[in-house]
Computed example of a mutant assay.
Amino acid sequence: MEHEVFGDSYEQGRQYVDILASRGVDWGLIGPREVDRLWSRHVLNSVAIEQLINHGSSVLDVGSGAGLPGIPLAILRPDLTVTLLEPLLRRANFLTEVVDELGLAERVSVVRGRAEDQDQTYQVVTCRAVAALPKLLTWCLPLVAPHGQLLAIKGESAEQELIDVQGTLRKRRLTGQVLSVAAHTDAEPTWVVRIR
């Protein structure tokens, strides 16, 4: 399945998974129990949203952590320019090392900082397992370019979280929807809240 999804980029994807399984665990970015599920639960889960991203988009991955979803998206989609935003120094250092090792530095940059301190805008802002939607909107909406979108990868609470922010969305004249997307027909679906 991973071969089918990543095609020519599979080796690069495998190298990233190997880094997560070794250094990612050593640095405390990935739990040891997650190693057997890195492809299914983390990488394929991350790239499921690529079908929602227009060709040539600039992408900001807020609270990138171990690089999810930003690095898998950059590996799968050479047309994207990706910025990994991470406030913690240790994680930012990890991301910088990984981007260099995978040869992604031309299209992927690492910025150490918090979303609320950024002033640039992007066509797509992504986040995965960062915070509840009300907080995410406060941090991320200022970073979404006009006609851009926020893609928040969520768990099964996605519907309820979207209901909780309806007032905010109406005030800002934005629309939100919960989508179920999958990287492959045999992959588990990913729940994503899309705000436009």
Rank of each mutant, 00 (worst) to 15 (best):
R37E: 09
G103Q: 11
A66N: 11
T126H: 05
D26L: 04
A129Y: 06
S57Q: 14
N93W: 04
A92T: 05
S57C: 10
P142V: 05
V99R: 03
R196C: 05
K154C: 01
G155S: 13
P69A: 08
A92K: 04
V192A: 06
T175P: 01
G24Y: 02
L143A: 01
V47S: 02
V181H: 10
A187W: 01
T185R: 15
R196K: 12
D61W: 03
A105R: 13
D100V: 05
Q118P: 03
G65Q: 08
V5S: 01
H42V: 04
I153N: 02
V108L: 01
G176V: 02
D79Y: 15
A187C: 10
L52K: 11
K171L: 03
S57D: 10
E101P: 01
P134H: 06
G155R: 14
N93T: 05
Q160M: 13
K171V: 03
E161G: 08
C127V: 07
R77H: 08
D119Q: 13
W39Y: 12
L141F: 06
E159N: 15
I19W: 04
T81C: 08
R41Y: 12
E86Q: 15
I71V: 13
Y10F: 07
L169H: 09
N93Q: 11
P189Q: 15
V82P: 03
L84G: 10
V108H: 00
H184C: 09
A92Q: 05
V47D: 00
E50K: 12
Y10E: 00
A115P: 02
A183P: 01
R33F: 02
R37L: 09
G24H: 04
Q15A: 09
Q15T: 08
D26A: 07
V82W: 04
D100R: 11
L88T: 15
V35N: 02
V47K: 00
P87K: 08
L29H: 12
G13D: 01
L143F: 01
G56Y: 09
V82T: 11
Q15Y: 04
E188P: 09
K171S: 05
D36A: 15
L151I: 13
P189W: 15
A145H: 10
H42L: 07
D36K: 15
R194I: 03
G167N: 13
A182E: 13
E34G: 08
A187L: 10
Y10S: 00
E101R: 14
R196A: 04
R41A: 11
D61S: 13
S46C: 08
P78I: 07
H147V: 04
T190C: 10
S109P: 02
E2K: 13
L38S: 04
H3K: 14
E97C: 05
R91F: 06
G28A: 08
D36Q: 15
I195Y: 05
G13H: 01
S64F: 09
I30D: 00
C127L: 12
V59W: 01
L60F: 06
G148N: 07
G7T: 12
G13I: 00
D61M: 07
Q12K: 14
S22H: 12
N45C: 07
V108I: 04
R90L: 06
L20I: 08
G113T: 04
G113L: 05
A182C: 08
Q120L: 11
V124K: 14
